[in-house]
Every structure is written in structure tokens, then in C-alpha cells.
Design a protein around this nucleic acid. Structure first.
Lengths: 310, 310
DNA sequence: CTGAAAGCGCTTACAG
DNA sequence: CTGAAAGCGCTTACAG
């Protein structure tokens, strides 16, 4: 120790330790968004809380890698013991291959099913169907849908059959499919992000139309999008829930953003992160993988009611 | 290549490459908050955007390490080529020592001056003083201050001389010192985080008092805190800016959070991150360090006016 | 231009 | 119990 001090020893070097031990103590968190954007979504923050919680006292760092700037090769060249995919598209398979090749366990949160990947899933399709059935049960027949981004390009606008077949965002597609099990012909408009502004933008396309063509209810694929819908309804003088019902998804706290209590599907976001972290630790300890399926609950608030008779 | 395929070669192993090359391609981002909380502050998100931008095409991953769960030793055992300290307290010196020992360049954003650390600074004290002078110039004499957390414990409540001397959050202290250059006796209340709710909580302590004791202006150390102040003023029926002036800090977009245009000190948050990333790349290329000092601009909005005559 | 050797800085299993 | 050796998997400088 004394000698170390005198020689001004710079080590120990964690890289050499990692090489020898075969462990780096780093878990990759892979997102398709830009760095800042990934953390602008409150769902991802809740997820991070859960991951931090699930990792507990394990001295593990999270290496955040935005896929946008990284190719599969870059991914493979980052040191990590395991990887967590944060809401990635159906086309990440190529990037995942690089990790699989390196025998790095991959945990995917709400991703399309992939071989050799540990899935932490949410009942997106089923939950969305239940939300739609709630509207259907109230008597709604003409429903609009505001979707999350369809692909990494985050293009806005009406969801055509063509755009749908080119879409890659798995969660978005699952939620849309669930809603359309109940309302097969519902017009859908995609937003460029899960934000209030984007929700408002999409809502204008659905609501700022002649009264006869206006839907009596809107299903938004996130609570932030739903708040945007509520805001546009207010702008246009459309009473909620009298003239318009609105359903969200997520169940986040909306402190001060709206005076309504949003009807929404409450998902266990923190739990999702916790389970992902547990799955990682489980895989690193060499035990067999097990997939996890989490459930969302419909919470009926004050934004849904029977439609006005037309 | 063919042989590699046949043998099912798992490499190349990034850890071995890092050891040989002496570079891991990883930059540590060190925060004193919990994982999720660090990214709940819009200032940190802007910072991340800037860092991502400043890193540009360099294939570098960000290793996020919450100091709360990491000791100095843990910090030293994480592989990284350089480290960026995100708004850390005056008492991180011990942790920084471990990095310095390893010859890891350390860039500190708005931290207390430390030897061997590359400083990216903001004119917190001077900017706060200018905000206070704006109020003073309008005729305000009795001013309250809502501060950011004073230390890692995030204790709420009135800022006593005792608490002040034990405080460790450098940015908070600088902003407070600047305001008190103009209003030496201003009562200050600390918030537990930079959020609207926390701002409201602190504001109640300052404003929910007999009218004669109420300050005619409140200086909030962040825009989110300022929105909390505005919200409480509305609750208590205090007219802004007629009966109460409010100054914020940061200059973030407050979409829909308030109908006022907040008077605030607009800081170059994205630029701060960009400069930090540049400083890292600069240090990694072996060039001499240079400190950076960024400036904030007072933007006068609709929340400040001359006080009502008492 | 090709191919074998040295070495990055640790940790751990083993010999003394 | 102490101490020297082997080896993690690369990259690069050097010999052929």
C-alpha cells in the first residue's frame, strides 16, 4: 500500500479486471431515440426507476446506447454483460444478432418476439381491446385513434394500410390491433412522439372537422397524447365527456395538466423495469430464462360517458 | 471469416480490445440523484441533448452512475475513459479523487472548483444577482427566495444560517449568494427537488402568511419552482404581477403550465452539455484543458412589475 | 505482404 | 500462508 502510494499507482484498472473476470459490471440500455428524448417519456423514467430498484445493491452501471447513432457493430463493440432493449422496433433483430453472437443475454421490454431474447411483455393488445370495449359498451360507434409513432421515422398523419404494413413499432401496432378488434374501421392518426403537443396535433386532424363527421370518442395510445386530445377538445368547445369521450394508456400522474380524471389503462411501469432488471440478474447467474407478462387495468375516470344522441 | 462462422466465434470481445487499446469508448455520467430522478429535471435532459450533440459521430456510450449507490471505490471500478459530473455537490471530492488517481479526465458541470477538474461553469451567482437587481429596480424591498435542494438529503424548509453552513449543493449556494447580494435579509425556503409541486410547497411557507408579512416578490431558483409559486399565488388569490412578482431561472419551455410569460434567467443548457462533451474529447486527445464559463440572460416577462404601494 | 510473438493489467489457481 | 506463473482475448509492432 505504501509502495503503491509512493509509486503513484494509477490502478487498479477496471478493464483488466473485467477481462480476467469475464464480467464488466455494465448493463447496456438500448434505445432507438436520441439520448435526451429517451428520457423525456415518463414511461421510460418509471422504467428506469424500476431497473434501478431491481438491480438493488448490485454495483452495476447502465450504459445508455442510442441505436440511432449506433450500428449493430457498434453495439457489439460496447462492453456489457447484458442488454435491455427499451421499446425497440421489430427491425432491431440485426442489432440483437450482434449481441447474441457475443453470448450477451438480451432482455427486451415490449418488443416483437425474437428467438433467444428474454421478453418482458405488457398486455398491450388485450388492454387496448378492453379500453375499446368500455367505449363500445357505453354506446360509442364512431371512434378515432391517436397512435404512438409507427416507426423510427416518427412520421405524422393518418394511418393508411400502406403505412401500417411498413410500421415497425411493435407496441404501437399491438395497441392499435386491440382497439380495432372492437372498432375495425376506426380512423387512426399517428403522432411523432408521446407528448401533449403531438397529441393535440393529431387530435386536430380527428376533431376539427364538420360536426357530423366527428367521432364521439378518441382512444389515445398514451396519457400524454390523451391530454393533448383533451386540450384540443377544449379549444374547439367540445364538451368532455358530454360530446367526446377520451381514453388514454399508461396511468401516469398528470398533476395539473388537466382537471379531468382520465379514463385510462394503468400499466405497471415501474414493475416492468424491476422485472427486466431481475431477468438480467437471473440470466447472468446462469439460470434458465423466463419470460414475464404484465397486465394493465382499466381505470374509469371522468372522461368517458355515453355518447350524445345524434 | 468462414472458419469464424463454422467455429461459432463469439468475439471480438470489447473488453480485451479495450485493455489492449487503453480506451473503452465509454464516458461516465455521474449524478447524485437516483437513476430516474436525474432525468426528471428538464435541465439535465437538455444537458444530455447537448452532450449527445457534442459527442457527434464518435461512437461513445454514456455510462450513467448514480453516486447515491456508488462509493468512490465503485466509481473507480467502472470502466470509463472520462467522466462528466452532473451538478454534483461540494463533497464529491473524495469520489473524484478515485478518478484522478486513475488518470481519468473529469469534467464537472457547475461544481465547486476542484483541482485537476475541467470546469464547465454557469454564471449562477452573477445571473441571480441581476435577477434580484431587476426586482430591486422595480422597487421591491421585501423578497422571498425558493431555493433548489441544499444538499444530497434534499431537506425542505427555511434556510437558517446553520443549514447554510452545512449545505453542499454548489449551484444552489451560488444562486442564493447572488440574490442576497441585493437582498441580504431575504427569507429563503429550500425545496426538495426542482419540481412544480416542490415549488408550491415552499411557496406556501412564504406566501400563506398575514398580508403585512408577505413578500412582494419571490425569486425561485428554477422555472419549475417558479411555476409552483405562481400556482400557489393563484390558489391564495394573490395577483401576479400586481401583488406579487416572480422570477425564475433556466428559461425552459413551460408549454401550458402557466398563462404567464415567466420573467427568468435564460441559461444555455444545451450548450452546456455540448461544451462538456467537447471538453471530454479535447482531454482525451491529450490537449491541454480549458475551462468554460457560460452566461445567462435576464428575460423580462409578465410576472414582474412594481410592487403595490403598501 | 504474411504470420508469429509480445504485452495491455489484472485475478486466480497452484506450487513452494 | 506467501509468491510466482499462467492466462483472459485482443492489437500492434516486428520478424520473416
Amino acid at each position: 500500500m505504501q509502495a503503491a502510494g509512493e509509486l503513484d499507482y494509477a490502478g487498479p484498472d477496471p478493464t483488466a479486471r473485467s477481462l480476467r473476470r469475464g464480467r464488466s459490471g455494465v448493463i447496456g440500455v438500448i434505445t432507438e431515440d436520441r439520448l435526451g428524448d429517451a428520457f423525456r417519456d415518463p414511461m421510460n423514467l418509471a422504467l428506469l426507476d424500476g431497473i434501478g430498484d431491481g438491480l438493488g445493491d448490485e454495483r452495476i452501471g447502465l450504459l445508455v446506447i442510442p441505436l440511432a447513432t449506433a450500428s449493430g457493430t457498434d453495439l457489439a463493440s460496447a462492453p456489457m454483460d447484458a442488454a435491455i432493449l427499451l421499446g425497440c422496433s421489430t427491425d432491431v433483430e440485426a442489432s440483437v444478432d450482434a449481441l447474441r453472437q457475443r453470448r450477451v443475454p438480451v432482455v427486451a421490454i415490449e418488443a416483437a418476439p425474437m428467438a433467444g431474447v428474454i421478453a418482458i411483455d405488457l398486455d398491450n393488445r388485450d388492454a387496448s381491446r378492453r379500453g375499446a370495449e368500455h367505449l363500445s359498451g357505453l354506446g360509442h360507434r364512431r371512434v378515432g385513434i391517436v397512435t404512438l409513432p409507427l416507426d423510427a421515422a416518427h412520421t405524422r398523419g393518418q394511418v393508411t394500410a400502406e403505412r401500417l404494413s411498413a410500421a415497425t413499432a411493435y407496441g404501437t401496432l399491438e395497441r392499435l390491433a386491440g382497439a380495432r378488434q372492437v372498432f375495425p374501421d376506426a380512423v387512426a392518426v399517428s403522432a411523432a412522439a408521446s407528448t401533449v403537443d403531438e397529441g393535440a396535433r393529431a387530435a386536430r386532424a380527428l376533431l376539427d372537422v364538420p360536426r357530423g363527421e366527428r367521432p364521439s370518442a378518441v382512444i389515445a395510445q398514451s396519457d400524454l397524447l390523451a391530454v393533448g386530445v383533451l386540450r384540443v377538445a377544449e379549444e374547439l368547445g367540445i364538451d368532455v365527456p358530454g360530446e367526446l369521450s377520451v381514453v388514454g394508456f399508461d396511468g401516469i400522474r398528470l398533476e395539473g395538466a388537466t382537471t379531468h380524471l382520465l379514463t385510462t389503462l394503468v400499466q405497471p411501469a415501474v414493475e416492468k423495469g424491476r422485472r427486466a432488471a431481475e431477468a438480467v440478474l437471473h440470466a447472468l447467474s446462469g439460470r434458465p430464462d423466463r419470460a414475464v407478462e404484465l397486465h394493465s387495468e382499466l381505470r374509469v375516470g371522468t372522461t368517458t360517458a355515453a355518447p350524445a344522441r345524434s
